[in-house]
């Protein structure tokens, strides 16, 4: 795990419908320490997914720089694991093979990489599902696979793009609690994108409010861990922080 530095990052693209250049991300700077959990929160169209896609290397940035462990990002790479909103599992691979995919790309032998995959599946209680295909699993189970598939490759930074937005509310709360537990156990460096203010405050050490491609404010979240919804639902400090972030995001 390494740290991540973003300096004066911007993204401008040509909008063929408007016939003009549009700036989706404007001069964003951000430093994420090793082992930190940072949430970027903002409404649709605020540029948060664009930022994540640039960090992942899926799209090029047009200004500034992105450094992972001091090295500039050029395209996608195994040092940055990604968890997608749409899960993006390989439908033609079993759950076990999906999780073992990253190690396989690194050249880890079959016996060894399946052992790794089994360990990670146990972490999310999916040992039973190892031999099944993604289409046979519920959305919540698929995203558990998505999370451990990224983690099993031991990336320096884990990038999560609204990973729980397409599962039902109850499952989402369970997944959020599981993610905080896994984070405490493995301490990966995480950048988590969401439009859900409560989710951001619940998960993060730090919440970055974004609007119209600019950073509005950074808020430190000093809530104790382990965190659970039972404990935090009526927690005054949680409500206060959520209220502040919500106000920021809405006022912009």
């Amino acid at each position: 795990m390494k740290d991540l530095t973003i300096r004066n990052l911007s993204k401008t693209y040509f909008d063929p419908y408007a016939g003009t250049n549009v700036t989706a991300v404007h001069d964003v700077s951000l430093k994420v320490e090793q082992g930190e959990f940072v949430c970027i929160v903002g409404p649709s169209g605020c540029g948060k997914t664009t930022i994540l896609n640039m960090i992942a290397g899926f799209i090029p940035h047009t200004g500034g720089e992105i450094l992972v462990g001091g090295r500039p990002v050029k395209g996608p790479g195994a040092d940055r694991g990604v968890v997608f909103q749409s899960f993006a599992l390989f439908p033609w691979r079993t759950v076990l093979e999906n999780v073992a995919f990253g190690p396989k790309m690194r050249g880890v032998r079959k016996v060894e990489r399946e052992k790794i995959a089994h360990e990670y599946l146990a972490l999310v209680k999916l040992t039973e599902a190892a031999g099944r295909y993604p289409a046979e699993l519920s959305g919540g189970m698929q995203q558990r696979v998505g999370v451990v598939r990224a983690l099993a490759n031991e990336p320096d930074v884990l990038l999560m793009d609204e990973p729980f937005a397409s599962v039902d509310a109850q499952t989402r709360m369970t997944l959020q609690e599981e993610l905080t537990r896994i984070w405490q156990e493995k301490r990966p460096t995480v950048i988590f994108i969401t439009h859900d203010v409560a989710e951001a405050v619940f998960l993060g050490n730090r919440v970055i409010a974004l609007s119209k491609g600019r950073v509005l404010e950074e808020i430190s979240v000093d809530l104790p861990r382990p965190r659970s919804w039972d404990a935090l639902n009526d927690d005054a400090r949680f409500k206060e922080l959520s209220g502040r972030v919500l106000q920021l995001v809405r006022s912009a």
């Binding site: 992942a56 290397g57 899926f58 395209g75 996608p76 790479g77 195994a78 940055r80 694991g81 990604v82 997608f84 749409s86 993006a88 599992l89 390989f90 995919f101 990253g102 790309m105 690194r106 598939r149 990224a150 490759n153 990038l159």
Partner: peptide
Amino acid sequence: PIHVRNAAASLGAGRWAMLTEV
């Protein structure tokens, strides 16, 4: 889906693995 290809790339798949695995 582009996300599936992106997922493979961010798990370390090169050009050949992208072809044969995805």
